[in-house]
Write a protein that binds this DNA or RNA. Structure first.
Length: 545
DNA sequence: ATAAGATGTGCCC
DNA sequence: TGGGCACCCTCTTA
């Protein structure tokens, strides 16, 4: 049956595996069959068994293992006949698996209804029409504080400055300085904390001895602009003077040192509460620790706030109601707590998610909305903290579910949006932009689920899970692998835009604390991409009504 | 240029 | 309930 093509089997297979797009379907089919022969030799198959046996005789196991490794199987489902992976800059899904974007079976990412350009899908929550009494109270008391007319969204979508290799490992957290507007703080996987004035690119500092591994959270002391609280997977919480780099170790949850990975406590969530004089941190075993700022002591015993043994990923205090705390965990829940009554199992509300919750934030002004990011590829929004929290007001399908080797994606509110609807989040799956696979940073109107803008630059090819919007300026900071990026709004004026492009600065650090102004490393097809990018600008709404 | 490896989470038993 | 293993669009370094 397959006797004729066999003699040229090996070269054909090798070529096919190296450049699969050039080989025809027929050849692929034959290769598949042959491979099965080789791997199944010893079977009583008639014609096939013979050739398999001779293969074995001639070159033994080595040859057969080579043949197997070149087998044209799908790397996802391990079946023959199709392959998942990149074809050029487009990723082809395995058709046997549920959609990689929305997780529903029956279609792939390419044909997913949620992948419609510029509009990710919104799933209306089932209980939307049931108003509770609390909803009514909310409407009366708080709705007046929320702007009804949406403001103009100004999207910082032009890459302004980049620092690469400033950090030696990937960036895990970002924070703008509360008063010095152009100062950005960045924490990395190695525990280093960078301070960078992006308007004076040479003014940058790295503090390397505050933490020894992942900086999970940074939070300024609201009363002292140069003091910073940080929490880390090294199990410590520190309070550091950014002018000097001198810090105080406030808490170490591994007082007995290292006793293996199973017992090592790491601090993930952290937030401060000035009204109460508290810093709260939470660990990877489900426990919450309270720390008294004035007395500089731990308060009481740790409280189990998520499933025992599961990581508490994030903590956030309500900006208006200082008694309300939001926690998110990898037990698939976000919980809202009254910190006056903090006991295991006594949360005010339990927000169920399909998978791990990466983050949960109150809205920045009224504190009346909640937005969560979950590994089930959904951003969930609850419109009223005091209303029905059983199911979210909206679920927005968005690709952000990769969880290994990447900092978890978190949808963050735009602190400048008085309507509390604009959010920013990096996207995991790439889009083919004129032949280059890029991972955009998405701006989403969470009141509608519409994608307001997708921010890309042809030279930023890595995924951007860490994003922070400036509290006052129209600036976006992005941590993408080891690169730090500053984005500003594109100028309407073409001439000014060209002018700015001339000033575009691409900096790199040499690891000795020096920054170098580099020649901008143009990609071969960069001009094409910019053309494409400009076209996309046309689609980007500047205002929404 | 290619390959390994650092990793977190889910799901299996 | 816990250990073992598999794992879809990474990124860096050897």
């Amino acid at each position: 049956m397959a006797a004729a093509p066999r003699p040229r089997r090996r070269p054909t297979v090798i070529v096919g595996s190296v450049d699969s797009s050039s080989s025809s379907d027929d050849e692929e089919e034959l290769e598949d069959e042959e491979v099965e022969d080789a791997s199944e030799n010893g079977d009583e198959d008639k014609g096939k068994g013979q050739s398999g046996a001779s293969l074995e005789k001639v070159s033994g196991k080595k040859l057969s293992s080579i043949t197997i490794s070149l087998k044209k199987v799908c790397k996802v489902c391990k079946e023959n006949g199709h392959q998942a992976g990149f074809q050029g800059a487009t990723y082809i899904d395995c058709p046997k698996k549920p959609c990689f974007l929305c997780k529903m079976p029956g279609h792939t990412t390419m044909s997913c209804p949620h992948r419609v350009a510029l509009e990710h899908g919104v799933v209306p929550a089932p209980r939307r029409n049931k108003q509770t009494q609390l909803d009514y109270v909310f409407d009366r008391q708080l709705i007046s504080q929320i702007q009804k007319i949406k403001p103009t969204f100004i999207i910082p979508d032009k890459l302004d400055r980049v620092v690469v290799k400033f950090h030696s490992r990937r960036i895990t957290s970002l924070e703008f300085h509360p008063t010095r507007s152009s100062v950005l703080l960045s924490g990395d996987k190695k525990g280093q904390i960078g301070v960078w004035d992006y308007n004076k690119p040479n003014e940058k500092t790295i503090y390397g001895s505050i933490h020894s591994c992942i900086v999970n959270n940074m939070k300024f002391d609201g009363r002292n602009d140069f003091m910073l609280y940080t929490s880390s997977s090294d199990g410590t919480m520190s309070y550091t003077d950014l002018e000097t780099g001198i810090g105080v170790l406030l808490m170490d949850v591994n007082p007995n040192g290292w006793n293996g990975p199973a017992s090592w406590r790491m601090l993930y969530g952290m937030d401060t509460n000035l009204d109460k004089g508290l810093v709260l941190v939470a660990d990877n075993f489900g426990y919450l620790y309270l720390f008294d700022i004035r007395e500089r002591v731990k308060i009481g015993e740790p409280i189990l706030i998520h499933r025992k043994g599961s990581k508490v990923v994030g903590l956030h205090f309500n900006p208006v109601h200082p008694d309300l705390l939001l926690s998110s965990g990898n037990d698939h829940f976000a919980h809202m707590w009254d910190i006056r009554r903090l006991e295991s199992g006594s949360s005010l509300a339990s927000l169920a998610h399909g998978r791990v919750v990466n983050s949960a934030y109150f809205s920045p002004h009224t504190g009346s909305k909640i937005m969560t990011t979950s590994q089930d590829n959904r951003i969930r929004v609850w419109d009223s903290v005091f209303g029905n929290l059983i199911s979210p007001s909206r679920e927005i399908v968005h690709s952000h579910d990769f969880n290994r080797h990447l900092t978890p994606f978190r949808a963050e509110w735009d602190p400048k949006d008085p309507s509390e609807s604009l959010a920013v989040i990096g996207r995991y799956i790439s889009e083919n932009y004129n032949g280059v696979a890029l991972h955009p940073i998405d701006f989403i109107d969470t009141s509608t689920g519409h994608l307001v803008a997708e921010v890309i630059d042809p030279d930023l090819t890595t995924i951007s899970p860490v994003n922070k919007l400036h509290p006052r300026d129209d600036i976006l900071a992005t941590g993408s692998s080891r690169s730090l990026c500053i984005w500003r709004p594109g100028l309407e004026d073409e001439e000014k835009e060209t002018e700015r492009k001339k000033e575009f600065i691409f900096w790199s650090a040499d690891g000795l604390g020096n920054l170098h102004k580099n020649a901008y490393n143009l990609r071969k097809n960069k001009s094409d991409l910019h053309g494409n990018y400009r076209d996309r600008d046309r689609l980007r709404p500047k205002r929404t009504e």
